[in-house]
């Protein structure tokens, strides 16, 4: 009987510890499940989960910092010592940090970068993301490439041949860090490279495809003739613009094969940022000229590896990513065109 009990006990112990590691939950608190980009990103984070020590459990903050606060307060009661937070309000995360500090829990912030002052509040805070200005730099590179690379002698895409790039900018949510920085930096980079740019208009389309279509439809009568390129803060807006441009004859699929052959068929350059799968597809089909891939896949890997190190309590020496100030893990964008 005693032996039987011992066997039973060890079996139970085995069951507990065997699956125990895998049962270790890391809360993945997304700002809004409705966000397509975050859906993709979330999938990638799950796919990158090659560690047997833990698994992610997603929570939806429903774009409300109040809900996010509640979720964080709740998960802090669990025994996870790492949480991944995609903040709703960049400015509103400092109480969460204070809470985490109180409970000695690490937070990996993703997608929205908290202000530096907050990240300095506590040493177990990390941010995995891309430098917003880099996306704009890369977007500018794509544009420079389109116009031939020589600021003093633009190629045939300088439609009016004035050596000035006439552009329409589709801006994201005003005040949004990405929108502001991308808008500002793409122009700045072009300037830095010696290109002259004439901004015909900056339309705020709030990162939305539908809103971008609407804005595009409104501005075409005004700037349709003069614009040489549409620069969008993200792919969704770029796609929204392309849909209108197709309607208005800026793209003509003469052989109706669903693919625009840039050599033979009519097309118009539109650049985006984010590298959504649908955007990549559109590039392959010749509609979208280029995009900057927000390398979510690499970010997902970095998040997983960082989570693993934190769960195991290992130092950052083994981390295969560069960690800046012991807080920032910057993932480079990728140009696709």
């Amino acid at each position: 009987m005693k032996k039987f009990l011992i066997v039973l006990m060890s079996l139970m112990l085995f069951a507990l510890t065997g699956c125990g590691d895998k049962d270790y939950e890391i809360p993945l608190i997304i700002y809004d499940f409705e966000d397509l980009y975050m859906q993709d990103f979330e999938d990638l984070i799950y796919l990158g989960d090659n560690y047997s020590e833990f698994h992610f459990v997603s929570y939806d903050s429903k774009n409300s910092q109040i809900i996010q606060n509640e979720i964080v307060s709740d998960v802090l009661l669990n025994d996870s010592n790492v949480i991944v937070v995609n903040p709703v309000d960049r400015l509103g995360v400092y109480p969460l940090i204070a809470k985490a500090k109180e409970n000695n829990i690490s937070i990996i912030f993703i997608n929205r970068e908290p202000i530096k002052e907050d990240l300095l509040l506590y040493d177990k805070l990390y941010y995995v993301g891309a430098k917003p200005e880099q996306s704009a730099e890369y977007q500018a590179d794509i544009i420079i490439n389109l116009f031939g690379g020589n600021p003093y002698a633009l190629n045939e895409f300088d439609l009016n041949d004035d050596n000035v790039i006439q552009c329409v900018i589709l801006k994201g949510e005003p005040g949004h860090q990405d929108a502001e920085i991308r808008t500002e930096m793409v122009i700045e980079e072009l300037h830095n490279a010696g290109f002259e740019v004439e901004i015909l208009t900056v339309e705020e389309a709030y990162f939305s495809q539908d809103l971008a279509s609407q804005k595009m439809r409104d501005l075409l009568p005004l700037y349709g003739e003069s614009m040489e390129i549409v620069i969008a803060n993200n792919d969704a807006m770029a796609i929204g613009a392309i849909n209108v441009l197709i309607e208005e004859g800026f793209f003509v699929d003469e052989n109706l094969d669903g693919i625009i052959d840039r050599a033979t068929e009519v097309w118009f350059p539109v650049v985006g940022i984010d590298g959504l799968p649908i955007a990549v597809e559109l590039i392959e089909k010749g509609y979208l000229y280029g995009t900057v891939l927000n390398d979510s896949e690499t970010m997902a890997q970095a998040i997983n590896e960082l989570a693993y190190l934190l769960v195991r309590g290992l130092g950052m020496n083994d981390f295969s990513f560069v960690i800046e100030d012991n807080k920032y893990i910057w993932i480079d964008y990728k140009k696709i065109y």
């Binding site: 910092q65 109040i66 606060n69 709703v88 309000d89 400015l91 509103g92 400092y94 109480p95």
Partner: peptide
């Protein structure tokens, strides 16, 4: 206690 969005 909650944060007010967009303020600190």
């Amino acid at each position: 206690i909650n944060t007010i969005h967009g303020t600190r």
